[in-house]
Amino acid sequence: MGAWRGRLLVATPAIADGVFARSVVFLLDHDDDGALGVIVNRPLESELHQVLPAWTSSATSPTLLFQGGPVATDGALAVGVLADPVSADGPPSGWRPMAGRVGLVDLDGPPPAPRQLVGLRVFAGYAGWSAGQLEGEVDEGSWLVVEADPADLISRDPESLWRDVVRRQSGDLRYWTTLPVDPGDN
């Protein structure tokens, strides 16, 4: 399966509240057992240097901890984008490839050298779906599955990422960007 690995889930207006409202999720894994991803547009107020000081220089601005999802929020995972997937130096120590140039970086090891990655984010928690659950949510219209750009993971303006991703889609979907966050404001 794995058809959606490396793609984005974009919350539709059907998800009106909660952690997934107007969220953009990068799918790190998707197979017959379920799916795993991180919400890439939910920075928290915690500065990364307060939580993992050694990783601050490796992280992409804004250097905040991000809310990766509602699962295991007491844990953290780092997601990085390789600068050059065929580098003579190889991938960073503790690298686990997930989708193309995107992979997980072991937070228990040393931070990668800046030249190895074009960006890195640290997420508190993750988003997870059991077998068939995500497919059902897509079928009911809660999510769009769209192409990702590795730059989406490390956007310097994560708060506008939902709007930016929707705007680059074709057809009438772009009109969603004109919808107010609170339908009562309409």
Rank of each mutant, 00 (worst) to 15 (best):
I154C: 05
H49A: 10
S61N: 02
L179Q: 12
G128W: 02
V81I: 06
V105T: 15
S58P: 15
G69E: 00
D108F: 14
D84K: 06
D108S: 09
T60E: 00
L48Y: 10
P92W: 03
A54I: 10
T60M: 03
D185K: 03
V145L: 11
P13Q: 12
P62I: 00
L179H: 11
P112D: 07
G141T: 04
E137I: 07
F123M: 02
Q116M: 08
L36H: 04
V145I: 15
W55H: 05
A35P: 01
W55C: 04
D149P: 07
G184E: 15
Q67G: 14
S58Q: 13
D164W: 02
S160N: 04
A131N: 07
G171E: 06
D74N: 14
G171W: 06
R115F: 07
P97G: 15
A151D: 12
R174I: 10
P180G: 12
V51C: 12
V40G: 01
A11E: 01
E147H: 02
A127G: 05
G34N: 05
D74T: 13
R163K: 07
A3E: 10
R42W: 07
P97Q: 08
L8D: 10
V38H: 05
L179M: 13
P183M: 10
A113I: 02
D89E: 14
W55N: 04
V138T: 05
F123G: 07
D74F: 04
Q116E: 08
T12S: 14
F123R: 00
L64W: 08
E137C: 09
R156M: 09
E140I: 02
P112W: 00
P70E: 12
L173P: 05
V86N: 15
V138K: 10
G6W: 06
L134P: 00
P70V: 06
A3Q: 07
D172W: 06
W95M: 11
V118S: 15
G184T: 14
D185P: 01
V40H: 03
G90T: 01
F26A: 10
P62R: 04
S87V: 09
D84S: 07
I39M: 09
F66K: 00
V25H: 02
R22H: 09
G103A: 03
S160W: 01
P97L: 10
G2F: 11
D108A: 15
D106C: 08
E47L: 09
L82H: 11
A124H: 05
G18K: 14
P53G: 03
V86H: 15
E47P: 00
D172M: 08
P97E: 08
R22I: 11
W4K: 04
V71H: 10
R163P: 10
A88G: 15
W4I: 03
E45F: 04
Y126R: 09
N186F: 11
D84A: 11
L27T: 10
P92R: 11
L107H: 13
L8W: 01
W4G: 04
N186H: 07
L134V: 08
D29H: 13
L44E: 14
R42F: 00
A16C: 01
I154G: 06
L48C: 09
P112T: 09
L179K: 05
G69W: 08
L44Y: 00
F20G: 01
A14K: 12
A78D: 14
G80S: 05
R168T: 11
S142M: 11
S23T: 00
G141E: 05
I15R: 00
P62M: 02
L117R: 07
R22W: 09
D157N: 13
D89F: 12
G34H: 06
V79C: 12
S23D: 00
Q169G: 12
